[in-house]
């Protein structure tokens, strides 16, 4: 395995994965950087890694979910602090509204439907490729995709109509 061809080459896919979870470009970039540095530190294990992208994607997903969890547990601004007087100073994701929409819709899907939509609608993989990556049959992929998009449609229509 080589750092440039087997790790750095996947930067955009990992970035989009992190972005689809966090909805924030700067946070997503930090996650990908941390994951790649961790992969570099663990270079003695590279010989045992059969699928570098799957290995890196799992690390990225875990790191992004950890970051999201920590962000949800951030304490409220202290009374009298600058943030308390001006809530807009509290750190908020600085992604565009467009990415925020699909990020939110995907984040509300249960596994493995979330990963399935990421692989199909964001990365453009075929049913066969998705089946291979998620250890499913192609028929299962079709059924799950139908289920995922039905949920996305319901949620999207509610958001459009009621702003939910």
């Amino acid at each position: 395995m080589d750092f440039r061809t087997d790790i750095l080459a996947h930067r955009d896919r990992l970035y989009r994965l992190a972005l689809s979870i966090l909805g924030d470009s700067a946070e997503a970039e930090d996650v990908v950087q941390d994951v790649m540095l961790k992969a570099w530190e663990r270079r003695e294990e590279w010989g045992a890694v059969e699928k570098p992208l799957a290995w890196l994607a799992q690390m990225t997903k875990n790191a992004a979910l950890d970051k999201l969890k920590k962000a949800h547990h951030q304490p409220l601004p202290e009374e009298g602090s600058a943030q308390w007087h001006n809530p807009s100073l509290v750190t908020t994701p600085h992604h565009s509204e467009g990415i925020g929409l699909i990020t939110r819709l995907i984040s509300e899907l249960p596994p493995p439907l979330d990963d399935l939509v990421r692989l199909r609608d964001i990365e453009g993989f075929s049913y066969a490729e998705i089946a291979d990556k998620l250890l499913l049959t192609e028929d299962q992929v079709r059924v799950y995709l139908h289920r995922a998009r039905t949920k996305i449609k319901e949620k999207y229509v509610k958001m459009q109509k009621y702003g939910l």
């Binding site: 930067r11 970035y15 609608d121 990365e123 453009g124």
Partner: peptide, 15 residues
């Protein structure tokens, strides 16, 4: 429109 534009925007995101 927002849904498909949002998908496209995320699909084109890169470092």
């Amino acid at each position: 429109q927002s849904l498909f534009r949002s998908e496209k925007e995320l699909a084109n995101a890169h470092l």
